[in-house]
């Protein structure tokens, strides 16, 4: 069952267009939403949540129109838009006391457990927390009102590798019951390798692909060859980097299977994104 359905979402800014963005988030899964800085990830998320007034499109949450049932739907959505950077002079307990008033389903036991798990002291002020701790506090708030869907915009960006790994474990445990889902935007692709079931890739305001993580990776191959082979394969390379001994690049799987004489290896998500972004301008290390 689809918990979130985004159809033809459109938002025009001077110099940027979110162009008919469509993808779904399945119940009980983690959807990784990837793209480079400025690709439209945050604009998409903000448009979905009506923080930005979209020019067109529809957003359904559990089959209901999210924009016309905003208050009800948002009670079942946990949001983390980066680190918690609001009311920095207030104590954590003051912020939590205000926040929980908005949720009938607030679970104080879960909240207290998360505070302990994240080593967050409720007597501390937001300004006294590190960047990573602020993300953890935002997560603690988002996870404490029994949300069915978590929408996380760059939640791991400011965290150290241990904290990131810890969070990814938490994400996996959240969806284990099959009833919760996560939409997780990031440019730290390695995080998604560890936990995402599905991938939606946005580039320049357009969705490049939205599919399951294995199919996403399986559709591409990393190839490398000698310098004199470059001209022959240039048209089938999605992106490549030339160096003194030859080149390495990305190809679609079917093209790679036909490419005789090249070394072919499975592609990882990060390479797919990097080489796809080079599509419009191949880069040479020699330049």
């Amino acid at each position: 069952m689809k918990i979130l359905e985004i159809k033809d979402l459109r938002k025009a800014y001077p110099g940027f267009l979110l162009d008919d963005v469509s993808f779904d988030v399945e119940e009980g899964s983690i959807m990784g939403f990837i793209g480079r800085n400025g690709a439209g990830k945050t604009t998409t998320i903000k448009s979905v949540l009506n923080l930005v007034h979209a020019d067109g499109g529809t957003v359904l949450f559990e089959g209901e129109d999210l924009w016309s049932n905003e208050t009800v739907c948002k009670k079942r959505i946990g949001l983390v838009l980066g680190e918690f950077n609001y009311y920095k002079r207030k104590k954590l307990k003051a912020i939590a006391a205000v926040t929980k008033q908005f949720y009938e389903d607030w679970d104080e036991e879960t909240y207290q457990a998360l505070l302990s798990r994240f080593s967050l002291d409720p007597e501390k002020k937001i300004s006294e927390l590190s960047q990573g701790m602020r993300v953890k506090f935002a997560l603690a708030l988002a996870l404490s009102h029994r949300a069915k869907l978590l929408i996380l915009d760059e939640p791991t960006s400011g965290l150290d590798p241990v904290s990131r790994d810890e969070l990814l474990d938490i994400f996996r445990s959240i969806i284990e019951d099959g009833e919760h889902s996560i939409l997780f935007s990031t440019h730290i692709i390695s995080d998604l390798e560890k936990c995402a079931d599905y991938i939606t890739y946005i580039k320049g305001g357009k969705i490049v692909v939205s599919t399951d993580a294995d199919s996403f990776k399986d559709a591409y191959r990393l190839v490398s060859g000698e310098a004199d082979q470059l001209e022959r394969f240039r048209s089938t390379l999605i992106g490549y980097r030339a160096h003194a001994f030859g080149f390495t690049g990305l190809m679609r799987r079917e093209d790679a299977e036909r490419a005789e004489g090249l070394k072919v290896a499975p592609a990882d998500m990060e390479s797919i994104m990097i080489y796809t972004e080079k599509e419009d301008g191949h880069e040479s290390a020699a330049q």
């Binding site: 905003e70 009800v72 948002k74 009311y87 926040t99 908005f102």
Partner: peptide, 17 residues
């Protein structure tokens, strides 16, 4: 200065409310 607009936008309330 405390980012109230964004904090409020994350709560289950509409802009109108």
């Amino acid at each position: 200065e405390n980012g109230d607009a964004m904090y409020t936008a994350m709560l289950p309330v509409s802009k109108a409310q």
